[in-house]
């Protein structure tokens, strides 16, 4: 049974329709890449899943119909979001950011700090004073503190230095290998997505136009839908 199931999902920003029919299935423990050029509806889909934007169509997580739940209730079911642009709690320290989000489960502050040793070094520092990469690690750590069953990473490595990107990708791979957490990853780097994810879904103009195993993502498909 799918952990997350989207069927014919549509959504609008006021009068302007952004999603015209997105289908997506994520099984327990599976890592899925959501791909597509800019403005094709990836972040909008994430906002719909997290109930930050109203949507029509089927939206089921772990057997629960999300379509009528407020966003905080959806998150409590086990949806963890690492949003585009990080958005840490700037005036709280690193450890306070983690404590504020904590819910009981496998992930606690010690485990997050073991995953990202840089955060342990900056424990008492204000989030606003961290580097971009450290803020990203904190955003991932904060989402992990909620002990999610599905972690959604929206452009988690955007604008970061190559060494920091590598650290984050290694952490993502470790999450999948060690905890079996399901992942939905949005990123521009095809190489890393191929390495970290089992399957991919491609969005084009608000529709899912291709989905399949990563191994099946041929250069032709990449050229047709992603402009690679």
């Amino acid at each position: 049974m799918s952990l997350l199931s989207l069927h014919r999902l549509t959504a609008s920003y006021g009068a302007s329709q952004a999603l015209f029919g997105v289908d997506l299935e994520i099984a327990e423990g599976e890592a899925v890449a959501m791909m597509g050029r800019n403005g094709m509806g990836k972040t909008t889909t994430v906002h719909c899943i997290c109930r930050m934007l109203p949507a029509r169509g089927t939206l089921v997580f772990d057997g629960h119909d999300l379509s009528r739940l407020p966003s905080h209730r959806a998150a409590r079911l086990g949806l963890g979001l690492v949003p585009e642009g990080r958005r840490c709690f700037r005036d709280l320290s690193v450890s306070e950011n983690l404590i504020a989000a904590a819910r009981p489960g496998h992930w606690d502050a010690a485990r997050v700090e073991a995953l990202f040793p840089r955060l342990a070094e900056r424990r008492g520092q204000r989030a606003a004073s961290l580097s971009g990469g450290e803020q990203q690690m904190l955003a991932i750590g904060r989402a992990l503190m909620t002990n999610p069953r599905l972690l959604i990473l929206d452009e988690a490595t955007e604008g970061l230095a190559p060494t920091v990107r590598q650290e984050i990708w290694q952490a993502v791979a470790a999450l999948k290998a060690e905890t079996g957490m399901a992942l939905l990853v949005i990123d521009k780097s095809l190489k890393e997505l191929r390495w970290a994810c089992d399957r991919a879904v491609i969005l084009e103009r608000g529709r899912s136009v291709w989905s399949g195993a990563m191994a099946e993502l041929s250069p032709e498909i990449g050229e047709r839908h992603l402009g690679l």
Binding site: M52, H72, R73, R87, F89, D91, L92, A101
Partner: peptide, 15 residues
């Protein structure tokens, strides 16, 4: 304190 700073982020962590 976090809810005062970024309410939508607090919702995203289930609060």
């Amino acid at each position: 304190d976090a809810a005062r700073q970024v309410p939508e982020r607090v919702r995203a962590v289930g609060l």
